[in-house]
Each structure stands twice: as C-alpha cells, then as structure tokens.
Amino acid sequence: MSESSSSSSPTPGSTGTHVFVTVGSTRFDALVQTVLSEPVLDVLRKRGYRTLDIQCGNSDFDTSHLRRDADDHWQRAGDLETSIWRFKPSLKEDYERADLIISHAGSGTIIDVLRLRKPLIVIPNPTLLDNHQAELSDALAGLGHLRSSTVGDLPEAIEGLDKSTLVPFPQFDGSRFRELLDEEMGYQDHTSPGARR
C-alpha cells in the first residue's frame, strides 16, 4: 500500500530501499514467480531493499504465501514488505518512487524509466513469438543504459548491479524530427517564432 511504501523512502546517501517490478499490459508469469522466489528476495534484502511493489498484469502466480487484501491486490509483511497488484492507469508515480526497477522489455516502459534516470534491469519475455523486444534491451544494455537479464539470472543481475556504472539515457530531443520535417516541407529556417521557447 502506498502509506507503508512512502514511510520507507530512502534516507539521503543510501542507495534506496524500494523496488518496483512491472510486466506491462499483458502477462509474464515467470518474472512474477521468480521475483517472489527466495533467491531473488534474499538478494534484494542483502542489497538493503525494504519494500517491493509488483505490477503483475494478467500473470498467474502462486499466491499461497500472500495475504489477499482486495480483488487483485496481495500483500506480505516482513523485512521485505511486498505489495502486488494488476493494473493502474499510470505507472509514473511508481517509477518515481522506485530506487530499482525490474521490467519487461516494452519500449515505452524502457524509455519512461530511463528518462527518469532510474536503475533498470530488463527481462525480455522469451514466450513472446515476435521477440524483437530482446533486440532493444540488448542494444540499450550494450550502450550501458540498462542491464538486460533472463529470469534465471535475475539474482546475479541484482547482486552485480553497480548503479554508478549505468550510462544516463538522453532526454527527448524534438529538434531532430522538427528540423527533418521543416526541411522536407520547404521551410528554410529551422526555428520559427512559435518553436522558440
């Protein structure tokens, strides 16, 4: 729940204590199940994380160790307080609150998270038929903007993550497309009065 999570916001100087996991608009059973497994929970505790939120979408997972609060909302107390829910209209606040984000490989999620300068571990979903998503996460991992991992290697990916080595992702630069279209449509100057800020 938001009250419990906000009370544990990171103290200045620490690497932060809140983890957010998101699977996007479909489902990713293996990711949710793995995040809830002891090896991952252990390494998260060891790295100092105290709260874990999981946006699970339509995933199926073992809920036997969880307390069901409401429809599509599960919780577990303890030294890694866990909260699981299916969907929200916007995840922006969840991204902003997180000190580490573990996500599916959707390009929208990746861009949003990286532009908020949040450490990101991406797990491409191997069950997707058209697995072009892995191409994007691999390419961005190659450039150092994020870490790409598999469900099986997630504990090692969390353990080995050194946030200081991540390369900041560039902010949106609209001038490229604006200049491209202006030129194509015959405008000679690239900064019209209305475009100036």
């Binding site: 604006r178 279209l181 019209s192 209305g194 475009a195």
Partner: peptide
C-alpha cells in the same frame, strides 16, 4: 494505438503547432 500512438505523439509534440 498503444506504443505506435505514444511514439507518433512524441514526434508530433516536437512540431511547431502554429506552423503545422
């Protein structure tokens, strides 16, 4: 729709709306 819409609107947001 979906990611297509997000990317398209991101591109459109770069334009001068008094020009286009």
């Amino acid at each position: 729709s979906g990611g297509h819409t997000s990317e398209a609107l991101s591109l459109v947001s770069a334009l001068d709306f008094n020009r286009y």
